[in-house]
Nucleic acid binder design. Structure first.
Lengths: 126, 126
DNA sequence: TGCTCATATATGTAAATATCATATATCATT
DNA sequence: AATGATATATGATATTTACATATATGAGCA
């Protein structure tokens, strides 16, 4: 627990979406097959803040286990080995589902904004 | 793990926001002090689907511990005892912070939508 | 050569949260 | 007397996140 400007916070930030990294990964892999480390820059743009590297690699292995991505080693001379991930049809299906779910989430958020605006009209919630 | 229309899902639904119930509770309590059971109908409108009752009561006690709400027993004749929760100034501050965080979350979601629309133009993501 | 930094892929562990089940008790209605 | 709605909780487990650490290679430089 910490206190910022008089407001209490618990260890985790508020407002994050569980496993939001997964559709972000799938979208990036929809553009082109990439390895874990290479995904990071793009992910930071999509997911905001910093991406936990350990979380990223574990997520990729889990997504492979779930059948949403495939991986193959890219072994080249004068270059570190890279595990290249490719999106599967199942992965595209999940991404589509995720986008639909996020639309619902988005509606809930805006419902809250509207309610907040009503109760606290001086704020500019919307 | 389950499979719906060929798409794999893990046990939890995708797209849920961690502790989204908390700003929803605080918004409802901003309107009037209420007891746990009484919050449920309003919460289902705010949080979508069904609200886990056990989660609700545990969350309320945790929020009281954090100083965001106060509680007092309402003991009346011919009526079950109710623990009435009231929002505090700290609670209002957290609600304000939560709304601001959710605006950032909302931007991330829409960033993903725009990216999705680019890669899959036939979808109507936005 | 030895040093450091960026690249690259992981695992270990603990804490926070969600989910599902269960317990308990009262009031109103049948 | 039994059932269902009201009302407040706890127990156990699974899931996810956060933070730390391990390991190894290639590039650039003194």
């Amino acid at each position: 627990m910490s206190r910022v400007n008089g407001t209490l916070f618990r260890s985790r930030d508020f407002g994050t979406i569980e496993r939001f990294i997964e559709p972000c990964i799938l979208l990036l892999l929809s553009r082109e097959p990439t390895h874990g480390y290479g995904l990071m820059e793009g992910l930071e743009k999509h997911c905001g803040e910093k991406v936990d590297v350990g979380d990223l690699y574990r997520t990729l292995r889990r997504m492979e286990h779930d059948g949403w991505v495939n991986s193959a080693w890219d072994r080249k001379e004068n270059q570190r080995d890279k595990r290249i991930y490719t999106i599967t049809e199942e992965g595209r299906a999940f991404l589509k589902h995720a986008v639909a779910s996020l639309k619902e989430t988005d509606e809930l958020i805006h419902h809250l904004f509207r309610g907040y605006q009503k109760v606290y009209p001086e704020s500019n919630a919307i």
